[in-house]
Simulated assay, not measured.
Amino acid sequence: MTSSQLQAVACSTAANANIFLPYINQTFDRFDISTPVRQLCFMAQVSHESGGLFYTEELASGAAYEGRASLGNIHPGDGIKFKGRGLIQITGRNNYQLVSAALQADFIANPTLLGGKNISQCSPDQLKYAALSAGWFWQRAGLNVFADKINPLQPVDSGANLEYFKRITRGINGGYNGLPDRLHRYLQGAAAMPAGPANQTAA
């Protein structure tokens, strides 16, 4: 993916796209996000979650996750310590342990390594792991399978394509929050990709 294509699908500034580009492409390579449609679907979701490649940590304190055994937050302070971080907001002690094993980095001892507030406050390592953790989550959820079912010659926001896109959204979000914005980002990116015009909604 080029910087201009990343800027288009992320609806981000050129500066933010340039900063994240090497880490995004590294993520594509590592987690087999290897086709234009896979990349469009991934970036439409990730850029929505991160506010256009800006936020690498959720804005809330994380206190709402305190004591959530389903997230593995069994120790006092876990809610805040393991709040949502990374471009896809990895949340909870359990997920931090899993992504630590996958990426061979200790996010339990160093949770902010997954992301530091926003792009302007992140070190290169935080940017790298913010991107890679999103790719890990995507692969673990098996979302390439649904991206592969999307026909790039048909509009993404209707028919079977929309149902597959919604399935991806549910895999990321647990529901369909922000679906129109996620679709908008896909369409913006599709126009900048080699087969882009065919992904546009018919007038």
Rank of each mutant, 00 (worst) to 15 (best):
S3G: 09
Q5I: 06
L6M: 12
L6C: 03
Q7H: 03
V9A: 11
C11R: 07
T13H: 00
A14H: 09
A15D: 15
N18H: 09
I19Y: 04
F28L: 13
D29F: 10
P36N: 15
F42D: 13
V46E: 05
E49Y: 06
E49L: 04
F54N: 14
Y55S: 12
Y55I: 06
E58H: 00
A60C: 14
A63D: 09
E66K: 03
R68H: 02
A69F: 04
L71Q: 05
N73P: 09
I74P: 14
G77Y: 07
G77Q: 14
D78A: 00
D78E: 12
I80R: 15
I80E: 12
K81V: 05
K81T: 15
G84Q: 00
G86S: 12
L87K: 08
Q89S: 01
G92D: 00
N95V: 14
L98P: 03
S100E: 11
A101M: 11
D106P: 10
F107H: 13
I108A: 08
A109C: 06
P111A: 06
K117R: 13
I119W: 03
I119Y: 03
S120Y: 13
Q121S: 10
C122S: 13
C122D: 15
Q126M: 14
Q126C: 03
Y129K: 04
A130Y: 02
L132S: 01
Q139R: 15
Q139W: 07
R140W: 14
R140C: 11
L143F: 06
D148S: 08
D148Q: 10
I150D: 04
N151W: 02
P152Q: 15
L153T: 07
Q154S: 05
V156W: 01
S158G: 11
G159T: 07
A160C: 02
L162Q: 05
K166I: 08
I168V: 11
R170Y: 10
N177C: 11
L179A: 06
L179E: 12
D181W: 03
D181L: 06
L183T: 11
Y186V: 04
Y186W: 15
Q188N: 14
A191Y: 07
A191S: 11
A195N: 15
A202I: 13
A202E: 10
A203M: 05
